[in-house]
Write a protein that binds this DNA or RNA. Structure first.
Lengths: 135, 135
DNA sequence: AGAAATGATACCATATTAGTATCATTTGTC
DNA sequence: GACAAATGATACTAATATGGTATCATTTCT
């Protein structure tokens, strides 16, 4: 089971790189070189990040991407939700079969608890916290 | 992101049903009727559970399945591992790019923490605990 | 005007998930 | 022993998700 898929990962790397580049516009070309991510795939990812207001894009010669908001306001869980959909761990297949007679399904409760924990932890990770240690 | 896939779910339902049938042998036919699971698919799943020593099978007329060990010694995480492979959440794609210079990647640490929690919680769920409330 | 960038979008390849079908083997019953 | 009733093994198919590519349109700097 993967918590983070490839596109989320690439997005994360790209956003971290852009964050470290402060104010300067970063082109896809530079990201491809520095991060070794397939060009077309990265372009698609950056376009999504632009649409979702994580990045702001500039077209034309000298164009590229910058952060659309402060790095400490971009959370890992935002990226996960954008590329992997809502984080729903506790969807209970069992509803029909195991839970018909009882109010509180013990499995459901556990899954809810796990989900809450995962979301809490992922919500505490910002781009800033991931870039902090790097030079 | 799904924590529990369809086959794990079906396996869980079947094992719970068999657990509740104490000692009596349960046939695929009965499970199909009671649980509305596609016959062929369920058969494949039960065969795996037999191979993995969760269930014990009896061939021939009057045959079927029983639990191979006490219900309180069968854990949800066992089923997840059988049908979905090892639970590894913390695989760190970022190793190369973000972590080259530092000893402890903050993301990695978080993911490890999440993984440990999930495993701990899932390890506390037994077939007994899921069947307990049902009539 | 033209080059350099992103935007939109359609497409392709592969892997995973979900499900089906069939023949072989074992075993209880007559 | 024949036969039906069950599971064992296994190969196949369908649908969906993931990972990646390609192309044309649009904007913008010079």
């Amino acid at each position: 089971m993967k918590l983070i898929t490839r596109d989320t990962d690439y997005a994360l790397r790209a956003v971290c790189f852009i964050a470290k580049s402060e104010k300067t516009i970063v082109s896809v070309e530079e990201l491809v070189e520095k991060l070794s991510i397939p060009r077309s795939f990265l372009r698609k990812i950056l376009q999504v990040l632009n649409r979702k207001r994580i990045l702001r894009s500039y077209k034309g010669s000298g164009g590229g991407f910058v952060l659309a908001k402060p790095a400490n306001r971009v959370f890992l869980i935002d990226l996960i939700r954008i590329f992997q959909g809502p984080l729903v761990l506790s969807e209970c297949f069992l509803k029909k079969m195991l839970c018909p007679n009882i109010k509180i399904c013990p499995l459901r409760k556990k899954l809810d608890k796990i989900e809450k924990f995962v979301i809490k932890e992922l919500s505490s990770i910002t781009i800033t916290s991931l870039s902090a240690h790097k030079t």
